[in-house]
Design a protein around this nucleic acid. Structure first.
Lengths: 357, 357
DNA sequence: AGAGGCGGTCGAATCGATTCGACACCCGAG
DNA sequence: CTCGGGTGTCGAATCGATTCGACCGCCTCT
């Protein structure tokens, strides 16, 4: 069990120098033979590769290479939540997919750092990386930013709070939500409530208090809220503990209890909205006849609900791709600038005019 | 935009040697001051750290460190599907969460390699890593195994086909399914069908053909199938294109069309089973009165379905943790052995005796 | 008082590759 | 015949840290 059967059991890897010696060339030439940079006679290259095969040499050691070249071929993604939590959000998954695809095409690999604060310091400080993408909206990422920029690692923010010197990819959260709110207004709604994304790292539930609104912890959530309040300045809001259906359910129950005259609920994500639909239905309210419900994201959610949710569609995969391209550009020394995507209102069958009376 | 505001703009990082010089000590001592290994006078350490602060030195370069120590602090996870696909499966997510948690605690970071075959060769060959976990059941991972073991990277398999010299973490897929099948038998079912996990990389749908059964591409799926067939040798099976609700829906429709007398459907995952429930209900069949449906995994699925699904519960997070621990053990030079978890039948309200007649 | 041990520091070797400038050689053109 | 230029190869420096052995006081124990 110690040595897999398919290994020659010597236990220590051959080095480029050994391969070169065996092939009767210098290390420099052997290096060229592997990397393909610089001119090498075909016959020489063959000899080197043959020697490598004989020694079971699998190519240059990434560690040594990366010391010398200053590149590790790794781009990190820093998230706030642990995987189990973050990846239940389809938006995170698609975003990550876009990132992975783009950097993969460029020959980079993806390092996943879930910033469990203290602990991740380890990863942030010690892991090799050529660039890092910061996911999430909280200013708690601050220490991460400090550590990484001290390490001179190019940083790109995604859905992050704008910050001096941090290039960003974002969407027009506020404008998108405003358009949705206008849609509600046009339908004749007056009492609209909001279920927001989590506002702090502890994922505290409850009515949105002034404290949160001031401390701008959760940039995305507050932006989306502003969009709604541009149209309905007094719209009450409840904070959910996560972008999850069951959290939408919990929050919507609270809203329905606290705000009797409600005719519409906006979830700051599609999952939250779906939870709200469940909450409405469990009280015998029909959607959209008795109450209108809309979300945000345009997530394609597998096998759920008979409704086509009215929502604000954002290009999540593209956002990931763009962020990755920004990182690659930064690595190439090209200028990096902010990118903002626009969202699009998609009207489904979960919104309608409120009943009169 | 070129240099973030919080950086001193010199553009080149200080080195340990410079810090040491500035502190008036040797590089060796400075190194000790940072790593904490070896004795350093408090006053000296202070001086070193102060010098580091003045030079904005963020600690030793991971690249150099990893060349010298032979460790990169990175453990890779190799998956077959691209992120968007793989992460829709809650089992993959929880598994990964377990892995990330465990290796994070040990100070390692997680490198995500989605093995898009040709392309990932890049990552597999060039990315620094101290160990790798191979996720998935397909023999297509073969090239990955070859490349990595040539690089002397310790390998651990998860849900992989048993293979000489590849330590593994697995569950008793077959026994678990057999117990579920026995449950059906006890209830009096005779016509039981199976919806299987994907059987090849192309995610081909359709009735399970002999070809697939021979080529043992998808180890897990075939094991789970065997478990059912231990009890119902002739149980028909349809292959789904993914572990997704909508795939379960599609497959179950096909089954209901093709097998009129069916009284029970086993999904090889909970998502597939949920799809099957939807398929049944859209035909007016009540679950479990008209048809019994069960799954596998014991996934906690957010906000779905009014049923408590009968299922075979597997310890997914624990599986991840165990795999991670195996990798860590291998790195520590400790002996590594296979680990098998056992599953547990959890009876919900989606299974009952078939109606007489 | 001498020996041994320990805390603290330093030099030098080392990890395994990449890369740049130099060099030798051969060819064709002038 | 010689010079210029391209091709293929090599030596040596370099990337930035870690680590091992040596060294030097100084304290303690006998």
């Amino acid at each position: 069990m110690a040595t897999p059967a398919n290994l020659p059991g010597d236990g220590t890897r051959a080095t480029l120098a050994q391969v070169a010696a065996r092939a009767g060339v210098s290390a420099s030439t052997a290096s060229l033979a592997f990397s393909g940079a610089g001119p090498v006679a075909d016959e020489t290259r063959e000899r080197v590769l043959a020697a490598a095969r004989e020694l079971d040499y699998g190519g240059p050691d990434p560690r040594a290479r990366s010391l010398r070249t200053g590149r590790s071929g790794i781009i990190a993604v820093v998230m706030e939540d642990r995987i189990r939590v973050a990846f239940r959000d389809p938006m995170v998954v698609t975003l990550l997919d876009g990132i992975a695809d783009e950097i993969g095409n460029a020959g980079y690999s993806l390092l996943l750092l879930t910033d469990s604060l203290e602990r991740a310091e380890g990863g942030l400080r010690d892991a090799p990386m050529d660039a890092a993408l910061l996911l999430g909206c909280s200013t708690d990422l601050d220490p991460a930013v400090r550590v990484l920029s001290q390490r001179q690692v190019p940083l790109i923010g995604v859905e992050a709070e704008p910050r001096q010197g941090l290039p960003m990819v974002d969407i027009d959260n506020r404008a998108g939500m405003r358009r949705l709110a206008e849609h509600f207004a046009e339908l004749g709604h007056e009492r609209v409530a909001v279920i927001t994304l989590p506002m702090d790292r502890d994922h505290t539930r409850g009515p949105l208090t002034q404290v949160w609104q001031d401390s701008s912890v959760a940039y995305t959530g507050l932006e989306r809220l502003s969009g709604v309040r541009d149209v309905f300045p007094d719209a009450p809001a409840v904070v959910a503990a996560g972008s999850l259906i069951e959290e939408g359910l919990i929050a919507a129950r609270a809203l329905l209890d606290a705000e009797p005259g409600l005719t519409a609920i906006v979830g700051q994500s599609d999952l939250l909205a779906l939870g709200a639909i469940q909450a409405a239905e469990e009280r015998g309210l029909r959607v959209p006849q008795d109450i209108s419900i809309a979300g945000f994201d345009g997530a394609r959610i597998d096998g759920l609900s008979r409704h086509r949710l009215t929502t604000v569609v954002q290009p999540s995969v593209e956002k990931g791709r763009a962020a990755a391209r920004l990182a690659l550009a930064a690595l190439a020394g090209e200028p990096v600038e902010n990118i903002a995507f626009t969202t699009e209102l998609r009207i489904g069958d979960t919104t309608a005019s409120p009943r009169r009376g």
